[in-house]
Design a binder for these strands. Structure first.
Lengths: 127, 127
DNA sequence: GATAATTGTAAGGCAAACCTAACAAATTTT
DNA sequence: AAAATTTGTTAGGTTTGCCTTACAATTATC
């Protein structure tokens, strides 16, 4: 689909950006840093990177907005996260924290195809 | 369990080392390089690293042997790989190549707990 | 046994992703 | 509005894991 080849790290950033945006209608670097347990300077760096790749718009001291592409990518990552969370929590029976942790990691490495199969599978099982 | 905190990369190396060892009763850096698609010099580096961490014995131009710990770690990674492969192949229905690729990636990030649950789950389903 | 080919190692470089420290801009407090 | 705090950025460093190039040791070939 999209040939961006985002690193796991950048996927984490755009995911966090989007979730914070949904919550607050705005994104502060400090928030991102807190959520991802990194320093503000690392966030700055990542934002520059995401902007270069055309996923967000963001000039010095400006507000962050998503490009169409950025929004799509963010939603895709979040979709992966959610289905994986359901799998780990509802099907394997991990607790919420561990289900979330595992989803966070696996979402960056699982193939699109595997994801689609997993979606069908979870849906099938849960009825 | 083991508090080694091996990187995904080093896990790949020790897994490859062990599998090659099982096949050939000996391990050549060239083989490792081929299997992991890296250069021989990168293998040297990784071996140094694994030796430092006490997983293998390996001096300059010497044969590679595993420590007890190293063997355990290798077997653990391989165990993860196998169960994940079964899940992707037998349960989700991915083809062999994609099942293998996904297993290779996920094995480095899934928690021990999740693995145990997955083992029970796969076992339960498949009878 | 000398030469050629293969394999292992060392040195030096690069990119990603993180860090700290210092400073600049913006916001809040008083 | 001045001072203090918070937030964003920059510069410079570290680590990991890879690379290339060059050379050393080993093994195979003649």
């Amino acid at each position: 689909m999209n040939e961006l080849n985002l690193s796991a790290s950048l996927e984490d950033y755009i995911e966090a950006l989007y979730e914070i945006y949904e919550q607050n209608q705005a994104v502060k670097a400090v928030e991102v840093a807190k959520r991802l347990n990194v320093k503000r300077s690392s966030v700055t760096e990542a934002l520059k990177n995401l902007a270069t790749k055309g996923l967000i718009n963001h000039g010095r001291y400006e507000e962050i907005t998503f490009t169409k592409l950025g929004e799509d990518v963010a939603k895709e990552v979040i979709k992966k996260h959610k289905i994986l969370y359901r799998f780990f929590y509802e099907i394997l029976g991990l607790d919420t924290v561990e289900a979330s942790e595992n989803a966070c990691k696996v979402e960056h490495v699982i193939s699109n195809n595997a994801l689609e199969k997993l979606i069908s599978y979870v849906e099938k099982i849960e009825k």
